[in-house]
């Protein structure tokens, strides 16, 4: 599903360099990514998502070589095929829960906001127990409810790949497990591939595989403070 070979990335201001000689992830695999702060976990996710562009090497997601796409194509590919869950959830405060879930359809004209999308958002919210809060704003939700909205937003387009960047980072163990339960169940249901960045080693046994950026297949040279 995801093939990375000879990946090289360096920020323009230097000080940080990431090298991934080879990494293969199968369809439906659930991967935990760990590593010390500044080892490039988030950067790796952003490279897979096509938000960042590698200096060298290739990243293939499914049949698409991300690293060969131009900006617009990468965005189109990302919004249709990749679900993103952020550490701070990053819900938009002035939108309702429904509109937050539908956000990918509101910000890219490649996505057609029609009745089926609205219905999918409602079904997803219902599956995650949020159907009665669709018209609320994020500020009026509990932390657990906000997480569910973020998962709904990531899953709405039925992505092939879900990238979660320390999505349980600010949560206690119980809440983190509950969120992970929800995410894994949604990923399993859709047969998607999950890359889950975490610092919490107690969660690692929930994944098929763990990639430690410091010790495993991926090597990162840490010279800066990223």
């Amino acid at each position: 599903m995801i093939e990375i070979s000879n990946l090289e990335f360096q920020y323009s201001d230097a000080g940080f360099r990431l090298r991934v000689p080879q990494l293969s992830i199968s369809r439906g695999e659930k991967i935990a990514i760990v590593g010390p702060s500044g080892s490039g976990k988030t950067t790796l996710l952003m490279l897979v998502a096509g938000v960042q562009v590698a200096k060298g090497g290739t990243i293939r997601v499914g049949n698409t070589i991300i690293s060969s796409l131009n900006d617009a194509d990468r965005r189109r590919f990302r919004i249709a095929n990749i679900g993103l869950v952020f550490q701070e959830l990053e819900l938009i405060e002035y939108l309702s829960v429904r509109e937050n879930i539908l956000l990918p359809y509101l910000i890219n004209r490649a996505m057609r906001l029609d009745a089926s999308a609205t219905e999918a958002a409602r079904d997803l919210a219902e599956a995650l127990g949020m159907s009665d809060k669709l018209d609320r704003r994020p500020a009026r939700l509990s932390q657990g409810e906000r997480q569910r909205v973020a998962i709904c937003r990531a899953m709405l387009t039925c992505p092939d790949v879900v990238l979660a960047d320390e999505a349980t980072g600010n949560l206690d163990s119980k809440t983190a497990n509950a969120m992970l339960d929800l995410l894994l169940s949604q990923v399993d249901e859709r047969g998607a591939t999950l890359l889950f960045v975490t610092h919490d080693h107690s969660l690692l046994d929930r994944f098929d595989r763990t990639i430690d950026l410091a010790e495993f297949d991926v090597s990162a040279l840490v010279a800066g403070n990223r």
């Binding site: 998502a49 938000v51 965005r75 952020f86 990053e90 910000i107 890219n108």
Partner: peptide, 9 residues
Amino acid sequence: NTMFRLGCS
């Protein structure tokens, strides 16, 4: 930035 990362130009 969130919008951009999600796929907004």
